[in-house]
């Protein structure tokens, strides 16, 4: 409960995310900054992007991100500026690399496997019984003969 309280306290702090004084004058640049900061995780608050977070560090990152954009960085370069220091952990969308291959590939792979499995069972169930082989036919004939 303590943890819940503490976290709710954080949530409830009235200093809310992006502050007016952080914003860039150029609306296009500011829009880019907003988009980028929605994809960056606030390190100290967990599961919140820096765009939503009121934490001090999130504020710093927002300001620095805007500095980079003002300095003419591309989106990728501005993001790299932050991941260079804080690692891929700050990216809310995990980049595709060896260690995240399973994560990204699993959903489509599961779908394909599940579809394949269902189609296979459906086909097997509907397939008429295979015609007897020559050997089976011979034995069948022999049996039938025997009955007569």
């Amino acid at each position: 409960m303590k943890a819940l309280l503490a976290l709710l306290l954080l949530l409830a702090l009235p200093a809310l995310a992006v502050e007016p004084n952080e914003r860039l004058a150029d609306p296009a640049l500011e829009a880019r900054a907003r988009t980028l900061s929605r994809g960056l995780r606030c390190l100290v608050c967990r599961n919140e992007s820096i765009d939503e977070s009121h934490a001090d560090l999130a504020h710093d990152v927002r300001v620095l991100l805007r500095e980079r954009l003002l300095a003419g960085d591309s989106d990728a370069a501005a993001i790299r500026f932050i991941t260079d220091r804080y690692g891929d952990f700050v990216l809310l969308e995990p980049p595709l690399k060896t260690s995240t291959m399973v994560l990204w590939m699993a959903p489509p792979a599961l779908l394909v496997v599940a579809f394949g499995g269902v189609l296979l069972t459906a086909r097997r169930r509907r397939a008429p019984p295979a015609p007897p082989t020559a050997e089976e036919q011979a034995r069948l004939d022999a049996l039938l003969k025997g009955q007569e």
Binding site: G39, G87, F89, L92, E93
Partner: peptide, 18 residues
């Protein structure tokens, strides 16, 4: 020991199309 985050962008990209 590697730390990554899986946030809304991941879910929007994988869950949405499904």
């Amino acid at each position: 020991g590697e730390k990554i985050s899986v946030g809304p962008p991941f879910f929007n990209k994988t869950f949405g199309p499904l």
